[in-house]
């Protein structure tokens, strides 16, 4: 049985696509069969972050409309053969997706893949609802910032009431907190909510903490998910997330600021 995991947040721009790409690639590198689905109909970004934008021929909506088969639309990752991407359409009608046709696509994918990662659009409307509806697990991506935390809580409400699991009275969606763009220095200075603060408020288990990192922009510039940058702190933090998803107990890293010398502290940097 495939694990269907939605990467969701409510608030936009918090790092869902970055996280979907890194986690999807990380799971595939561990030998699992993974498909990444871009649910952000109309925007389409995952292909860019994955570096396969020039290979998009057909998309999710083409498959839904029967204009292409799944195999025609799926793009095989050039780095890891066990990873595929199902791109979002760029221009089409957002309402193309509904529970029934999305369910069919997921069922079909579930026959082949071990992990189905759904990159959700922002918001709490129909698009985000579609992305989370069939999920078994949710990675609630949150920035340590008031509006993001509040929106994450709303998404938790939706997971608990609007998902298939909720509607059918099944075991609830397994929720994971992924705190991204974390800046230990600012936390220590009292300017940013800490991991503990966010955990206290949302009260769901912590899956990972990804530090604010320049490596993320570099990675997106290159179309190479940041988990491939094994030297970077963000890359390492995503690797830990993958290991935890696979059941390992991994200690949390990058939670405290690097201690700088007095010299660089006084003269900036």
């Amino acid at each position: 049985m495939a694990r269907i995991i939605v990467v969701t947040s409510g608030k936009g721009g918090v790092g869902k696509t970055t996280s979907s790409a890194a986690i999807g690639l990380g799971l595939a590198l561990k030998g699992h069969k993974v498909v990444l689905i871009d649910f952000d109909i109309g925007l389409r970004n995952l292909d860019l972050i994955m570096g396969c934008e020039r290979r998009v021929v057909y998309d999710f909506v083409n498959v839904i409309n029967g204009e292409a088969t799944l195999n025609q639309a799926l793009i095989k990752d050039k780095r890891v053969s066990s990873l595929s991407i199902l791109p979002a359409s760029q221009t089409r009608d957002k309402d193309a997706l509904n529970k029934e046709n999305v369910g069919k696509v997921l069922e079909e994918l579930g026959k082949t893949y071990d992990y189905i990662i759904c990159d959700s659009p922002a918001g709490i409307e129909a698009g985000a609802m579609m992305a989370l509806y069939y999920a078994d697990e949710a990675i609630v991506t949150t920035n340590p910032e008031v509006s993001s935390v509040r929106d994450s809580d709303r998404i938790l409400g939706m997971l608990a009431s609007r998902s298939r699991r909720a509607e059918q009275g099944l075991e609830p969606i397994k929720e994971h907190l992924l705190l991204t763009r974390y800046s230990p220095k600012r936390v220590e200075e009292g300017e940013m909510l800490s991991v503990e603060d966010v955990k206290d408020i949302l009260s769901i288990p912590l899956l990972g903490v990804i530090p604010e990192s320049q490596a993320v922009l570099k990675a997106s510039n290159a179309g190479e998910p940041v988990i491939l940058d094994t030297e970077s702190d963000a890359g390492k933090a995503y690797q830990d997330v993958v290991d935890r998803l696979l059941g390992d107990t991994v200690e949390f890293r990058f939670l405290t600021a690097e201690k700088k010398g007095i010299f660089s502290r006084m003269f900036g940097g």
Binding site: V146, D153, G190, E191, L193, S194, D200, I201
Partner: peptide
Amino acid sequence: EKQVTTASKAKERLQIIVAHER
């Protein structure tokens, strides 16, 4: 400035609004 942390204010406000919305 350390004593006046905006983060603790943020936490307090969030706890109230989140509890209310839940």
